[in-house]
Every structure is written in structure tokens, then in C-alpha cells.
Amino acid sequence: MREIALHLLDIAENSAAAASKNVSIQVHEDLLRDRLTACVIDNGRGMDAETARQVQDPFYTTRTTRKVGLGIPLLKLAAEQADGSFSLQSEPGKGTRVEAEFRHSNIDRMPLGDLSSTFLTMLIAHPEIDWTFMYQVTEKDSQSRDFVFESAELKSELQDVSLTEPEVLTFVRGLLEEGIEAAALQTVAE
């Protein structure tokens, strides 16, 4: 994976596969604390403690097509290599929370990447899920901006019209791109 945004897409796919009704993707670029935090929280079927431990091992997977599962171990490695940390909390029947933290200035931290494409892809691929996307930025002088998007509102407006109708796509893509661009860091170019 070349971007944190691609990891988020991958982890959120796990949430969708776990039959979640609500999934929240939260990203915080915090220059004040020199941290980048990325979090996926779902209310899917969850895992017991043993499974939650095993999924962090690349040679474990719940899938049957292959004997390796790399999504979670790859993100864990990426975070740990960038002076960060990884945590996974899960409870059967309640849901799962995956959090990866990176040192923002670490040379090995991969770029955040194209967050709006990740968000748009999840919206289109899983219209049945109520998504919350949150992107927060804290500058060195502690000024803070954020962008929050909730798909439930969009869905109730659209009713029976699909997200993949061209006019609707243009609207949603514009909404995500403009929102993220307006909140993004101005001092750091990626």
C-alpha cells in the first residue's frame, strides 16, 4: 500500500464484510502533537479476544480463498515503522475499532493520500452502510479545521435514485473533494 488512505479503504472493507450498519472513518492530522491518527470504527459482528489477536498475524485469515490475511498486519507494520502504534479493540456482537497512529514528521510515514477517493469508493461500493467520514487538522499554532460527512443525510435526500447516476456522482465527488481540500493542511505539501 502506498497511502494511508488505501489502508483505510482496506480496513473499512473488513467492516463492511462484518455486516456493519454504521462505519466511521476518522483521520486527524495533528501538527501540534506531531501525530497522524487514522481510525475505523464499526458496529459489525466483532471478534472475540483470541480472533482479535490472531488477525494481527499475517498467516491468519477468516477467508477461505487463501491462507494469508495481510490487511491488518500491513497497517500495523506501517504505523510501527513510523514511530507510531496500532490498536485493535473488538467485542462480539458490538463491533470493532482499529486505530493506527503515526509520527507525522517521521520520514517513513507514508503519505495520507487521496482521502476523497477512498471515501467516494466506500460510499459507492457499500450504499447499504451509513458512513461517517471525519477529517480533522490541527496546525502548529493549534488552529483546527475539520470536515464531517454523513451518508445517511445524502441517502434520505436521494431516496430511490442511485449514487451512480452521473449528476449525483458529480455532486457527491465535489462535496467530498471540496470539503477535504478546505480542511487540509496548508503548511505541509505531501
Partner: peptide, 18 residues
């Protein structure tokens, strides 16, 4: 492309798409 941000705009877009 003009900036489209409001959900009022979305209502019109929905009707058109339909």
C-alpha cells in the same frame, strides 16, 4: 464547474437524474 455544496442543490439534481 461551479461549486455545488448545498443539499437544496441535491434535490434538483435528484429530480433531473430521475
Amino acid at each position: 464547474m461551479p461549486a455545488i455544496k448545498s443539499f437544496d442543490e441535491l434535490k434538483r439534481i435528484r429530480e433531473e437524474a430521475l
